[in-house]
Design a protein around this nucleic acid. Structure first.
Length: 664
RNA sequence: GGGCGGGUAGCCUAGCAAGGAUAGGGCGCAGGCCUCCUAAGCCUGUGGUCGUGGGUUCAAAUCCCACCCCGCCCGCCA
């Protein structure tokens, strides 16, 4: 079913073109229906017509079930109404419509006039080229898409990699829609975890990384975190033993066992690093305290802490940039959480929040009572909350005076809204509650408009079949590994299939194909569903994969290259095969698919679309000759069709951040 | 206990917001197709109580209610 029917026709040199050919067809169908209902004095009963795609091609290209609805008002059978409406239509007015029929229990089916629709569609695609399908919005907005924002503690792992792929695709789509899009990376450098890595890094004497910096940082973080945790648990255990709290002792023992086994793993993996950190950390009578102190000093903006933590974070980010740029993901702004703290913005927001009746203090601790806000401002329905559900409170400030993540995020969000009208946060589903509390805080502060333009783009996790990925435990598969492996496999494949390519070309193609495979795999499934990681799924070269679509694109390019001529005198009326007409229709649908994908923020719709188009094209490719088709007017029409498929496949892939190679 | 998300063939997945004609794909499995534009392909076959039970409707995978299973969240973590 479709809703979007906006389109503009403009005059080409000699042929009409349209930025949305399918919408032209719909407009015509709608006009015919309106006229017919008018004639039968039923115009008042139905003003909107929804169109759908009939289940079988032979039924036509568009259908409406309006007569079922109409039948209720008139007391006549749907089929009879459909027949009457069809009869009342003025055939002389048919342009893109060739035939209308009543069918089934009361459908009205519209058959397209492909001689005209093919001409309109193929000319439009080829003239608009890289702009075809990218229908611009009437209301362009400034939009910030915040995505990735992986903490600078360890390399980006495959569980997190879904985020940049989705975020980047969404940003590309919105931008293509005509919005002014800014891609922001929120550098979360404030908090205990950053203090942990900085602490370990300092203990090691701030070593220069001998490998990719984020991998280097990741090792130090994992080992440090593990050792500190064991240290802390041991102390807790002693305390618990002294007061002979048996249940607690047992619990701590279990946790300790867990961490000791992690330590064992880590010692095997990185013996030197492990020994050195163990030695250094043991020198510290209270590592926990040192870390807490470092965290406090950093928030307070003390010079030494600043230098240290920024150095570590920056190091890690260098690694991220390398990985992400390889995957084709870039940012317009890197926003440091610490800057928000130091600039006083966080304090300012806290001050304002304190003045609302929704914040209470006990000791130094500040609590934000989100539930109260919901009642007071009557937000329940607006936020889609159940009637008895009480939103939990949110701690804004710790007893030691430091702030918490969501508190800073409130300040950050307000800052973002000073630069944009809409903010989309690509953040995992597990943070839904925090994102809700954040939104409620905006309402509490009187930023109603911000709250309503804040979107939490939630996505589900990527899981490993055996165990849970855990960055703290150093159990993860990095995005780098996955990309390397994908490119390696792609290289093998290219070498096997296209030995004639130069070494340089093979490498380039392998890169494009490998990266594409990974991006596609992470974007293709509904973000709400979890993805179970396995190599064959993420590095798939068969149907329903980026390589498959890329291959199809390369095949189209190959035909055009071999033809070595432009389609000078195409006769689109000769495109009489069902497959050809289905291809044309699919191409005509692209603009509406694009609009729907952007408006609903569903990049997977574009992945599905591209895959479906590739399927049809391959079937066509297998069934009919193009270059040698006779007569030449048919050959030319088919060449134009191939060219249009090439353009649309490329445009669709580009929107989700995948490059379409011309050979592979 | 409460909240959120998910449940569609052996496995993975589309469709669900705006209910409509025969629930699309892919993997797997069984078979077939390269003197012809790239076989990363194409064709044929195989496989479905759309989690369960009620309800609304001329019509339910889709809407409503109840329940079951899985995941996540309910931190002075992020």
């Amino acid at each position: 079913m479709f809703t979007f029917t906006v389109s503009r026709v403009r005059k080409g040199e000699n042929l009409m073109i349209s930025e949305n050919p399918l919408a032209e067809l719909k407009k015509e169908c709608e006009a015919l229906l309106k006229e017919a209902t008018g004639k039968l004095q039923m115009a008042e009963l139905l003003k909107q017509f929804a169109f759908e795609k009939p289940p079988v091609w032979e039924f036509g290209q568009l259908a409406t079930s309006a007569c079922f609805e109409l039948a209720k008002h008139v007391g006549e059978k749907p089929l009879v109404l459909a027949q009457q409406l069809v009869k009342a239509m003025d055939k002389a007015k048919f342009q893109l419509v060739k035939e209308v029929s009543a069918a089934g229990g009361g459908y009205i089916n519209f058959h397209a006039n492909f001689e005209k629709l093919s001409a309109l569609t193929l000319e439009s695609v080829r003239q608009l080229d890289s702009e075809y399908g990218l229908v611009k919005t009437e209301k362009p907005k400034k939009i910030i898409v915040e995505h990735t924002s992986v903490n600078p503690l360890h390399p980006i792992h495959i569980g997190q990699a879904r985020n940049p792929m989705l975020g980047d695709a969404v940003a590309r789509m919105l931008s293509a829609r005509g919005h002014k899009v800014f891609r922001h990376y929120y550098v979360d450098d404030v908090g205990r975890q950053t203090a942990v890595i900085a602490y370990g890094y300092k203990k090691l004497g701030k070593p220069k990384p001998a490998e990719k910096p984020d991998h280097f940082i990741g090792k130090i973080y994992t080992v440090t975190s593990c050792l500190v945790e064991i240290n802390r648990l041991k102390k807790e255990l002693e305390r618990a033993k002294m007061v002979s709290a048996e249940e607690e002792t047992a619990k701590i023992n279990r946790e300790l066992d867990d961490w000791v086994s992690v330590a064992f793993e880590l010692k095997q993996k990185y013996p030197d690093l492990f020994e050195k950190l163990l030695e250094k950390i043991n020198e510290d009578p209270d590592p926990e305290k040192s870390i807490g102190e470092l965290n406090r000093a950093y928030e307070a903006g003390e010079e030494e802490a600043k230098r240290l933590i920024r150095e570590v974070s920056q190091l890690c980010l260098e690694g991220f940039k390398e990985t992400l740029s390889r995957a084709g993901v870039f940012y317009d702004s890197w926003d440091w959480e610490s800057d928000l703290v130091w600039s006083g913005l966080v304090a300012e927001v806290l001050q304002k929040l304190r003045q609302t009746p929704f914040v209470t203090a006990f000791g130094g601790v500040l609590e934000f009572e989100a539930g109260k806000v919901v009642e007071f401002l009557d937000l329940r329905e607006k936020l889609g909350l159940r009637k008895d559900y009480e939103v939990p409170s949110l701690t804004l400030v710790r007893a030691d005076g430091t702030t918490l993540y969501t508190t800073r995020d409130i300040a950050y969000t307000i800052w973002k809204f000073s630069k944009a009208e809409k903010c989309i946060n690509v953040i995992g589903m597990e943070q839904s509650l925090a994102q809700l509390q954040l939104k409620i805080a905006l309402y509490a502060l009187g930023y109603r408009d911000y709250a309503e333009n804040l979107v939490h783009f939630a996505y589900n996790l990527v899981t490993l079949p055996g165990y849970k990925m855990s960055s703290r435990r150093g159990r993860y598969i990095t995005l780098d590994e996955v990309l390397d492996e994908a490119i390696r496999r792609a290289y093998e494949e290219v070498s096997k299939r296209s030995p004639q390519l130069s070494e340089d070309e093979k490498r380039k193609v392998a890169e494009i194909v490998g990266v594409g495979a990974v991006r596609y795999a992470l974007v293709e499934v509904d973000p709400a569903k979890p993805v179970e990681f396995n190599w064959d799924r993420v590095i798939n070269f068969e149907k329903n994969s980026a390589p498959y679509i890329q291959y199809t694109h390369a095949r189209a390019c190959s035909i055009l290259r071999k033809a070595a001529r432009k389609p000078e005198r195409p006769d689109y009326g000769l495109l009489k095969e069902k497959l050809e007409q289905e291809l044309v229709f699919t191409l005509a649908e692209f603009p509406e698919t694009f609009i729907e994908a952007v408006e609903t923020l569903k990049p997977n719709l574009l992945a599905d679309y591209a895959n479906a188009l590739a399927d049809k094209f391959n079937t066509f490719y297998n069934a009919f000759p193009v270059i040698k088709a006779e007569p030449p007017e048919l050959s030319d029409a088919r060449l134009a069709l191939v060219d249009a498929v090439r353009i649309v496949l490329r445009n669709a892939l580009n929107l989700i951040g995948i490059t379409a190679p011309e050979r592979m």
